[in-house]
Design a protein around this nucleic acid. Structure first.
Lengths: 197, 197
DNA sequence: CTCACGCTAGCACAGTCGTGCTAGCGTCGC
DNA sequence: GCGACGCTAGCACGACTGTGCTAGCGTGAG
C-alpha cells in the first residue's frame, strides 16, 4: 500500500494527470480535487508534491513544453544537415501523432489563461523565445550549409516559418476535421520546398 | 433610474463588459457576478438578458467574431481588386490597433476553452470555416484578376496564408514585445509580395 | 388614470473551490 | 528494536460559483 517513489517521477505522473483532465474537461476543471482523483491520490497527498495549484499548473505546462523541446533537440541531433534538419525540427513540433497532439492541446489550453496569469505568462514567454531561437538557428544552418534558396532574408523567414508552424498546429487542434495531419504535412513540406529550391 | 433600452444594444454592452473582464482577469473570472458588476448591473438584471452563463459567453465570443468578420467584409468592399483586396482583408483581421487587439485577445482566451465546451466549439468551428472561406475567395479573386504569380496552387496558398495570419496574430498577442505591429505588417506584406510578384 | 410588463435588485440554495490542518500509516536509517 | 520522516488520507474553513426565486420600481399602452 505504500511505496517510496522518486518524487520527480511522481510529479511527472501527476502532471500527466493534469493533461488528461485538461483534454477531457478543460483547464477550468483542472482543480486540485479533480487532478488528485485522476492521479489516484487524495488532496493532501497531492499537496505534498505541489504546494499550490498554481505550482501544479505551471509545472504541467512546463513539462509539456520540455517534452516538445526535447523531441525537437533529439530530432535535430539525429537528422543530417540542411533541409533534413529543418524538416525534422518542424516535424517534431507539430501535432501529427498522439503524443504531439497531447502536448499541443495542453499548450493551447494554457495559452488563453497565460494572457492574464503572470506565472503562466512568464513560462509561456520562455517557451516562445526558446522555440523562436530554435527556428532561427535551424534556418541559419540551412543557409550556411548552402541548401537555402539564394538571397533569402533569415529574420523574415524565421518569423514566417514560426508563424506557419504555430498557425498550422493551432488549426490542426481546433479543426482536425479540416486540417488533417496529411494536409498539415503537405503544406509544411511545400513551404520548405520554396525555402530550399 | 429606469430606461427602456434596445435589448440588442444592451446585450452588446454586456458582452463588451465580458471582454473587459476577460482581458483584465481572464476567462475564468468571467462569472455572472463579475460581468454584472463590470456592466453596472445586478445579477438578476443581467439574467434578464442572458438566461445562462453559457449563453452569455457564447454571445460574447460570437460578437467578437462578427465584429472582425464585418470589418473584413467592409474592407473587401471598399478595396479595389487584386492585391489590394487581399491586403485589406488580411489587414482587417490582424491585431494592429486597439479594437482588433481586443477581438483577437478575446478569441484567444476562448480558444482553449472551446476545445472541451461543445457550444463554444461549434461556434468556433463556424468562425474558423467562415474565415477560411474568405481567404479562399480572396485568393481566388487574386488569380482571376491576373495579379497572382503564375502557377500558384490555390488550395495550398489559402491554407498557408490562413496559417500565417493566425500564427502571426497569435504571436502578436502572446509576445507583443517581440512581434510588434510593424514586424507583423512587414512579414505579411512580404509574403503577399511573393504571392503576387 | 390605470394596468401590464419590461426591467431591476438582491437573497437563498447547493455545489465547488484552494488551502491549512491533524492524525496516522509504513518504510528506512540507526 | 525504534525513532524519524516521507507519504497518505480526509476533514474544516471561508470564499466563490450558477441558478432560481420573489418583490417592486417606473414607463408606456389602453
Amino acid at each position: 500500500m505504500f511505496k517510496v517513489v522518486d518524487p520527480v517521477e511522481r510529479r511527472e505522473q501527476i502532471a500527466e494527470g493534469v493533461w488528461r483532465v485538461i483534454r477531457r474537461d478543460g483547464l477550468a476543471s483542472a482543480s486540485v480535487r479533480n487532478v488528485a482523483a485522476e492521479a489516484g491520490l487524495s488532496q493532501g497527498s497531492l499537496r505534498h508534491f505541489f504546494g499550490s495549484q498554481s505550482e501544479l499548473l505551471v509545472f504541467s505546462l512546463r513539462l509539456a513544453g520540455e517534452r516538445t523541446r526535447a523531441r525537437m533537440q533529439a530530432a535535430a541531433e539525429t537528422a543530417g544537415g540542411g533541409r533534413d534538419l529543418v524538416e525534422a525540427v518542424v516535424e517534431a513540433m507539430v501535432p501529427v501523432d498522439h503524443d504531439r497532439r497531447i502536448e499541443t492541446e495542453v499548450w493551447l489550453a494554457f495559452l488563453g489563461a497565460a494572457l492574464s496569469d503572470p506565472a503562466l505568462r512568464a513560462l509561456n514567454d520562455e517557451i516562445f523565445d526558446g522555440m523562436r531561437q530554435m527556428f532561427a538557428d535551424v534556418l541559419d544552418e540551412l543557409v550556411e550549409s548552402g541548401h537555402a534558396r539564394p538571397g533569402i532574408d533569415l529574420s523574415y523567414e524565421a518569423d514566417r516559418l514560426y508563424a506557419i508552424v504555430d498557425g498550422l498546429a493551432l488549426h490542426a487542434i481546433v479543426r482536425p476535421e479540416v486540417v488533417t495531419p496529411e494536409r498539415l504535412r503537405s503544406t509544411l513540406t511545400r513551404h520548405l520546398d520554396e525555402l530550399c529550391r
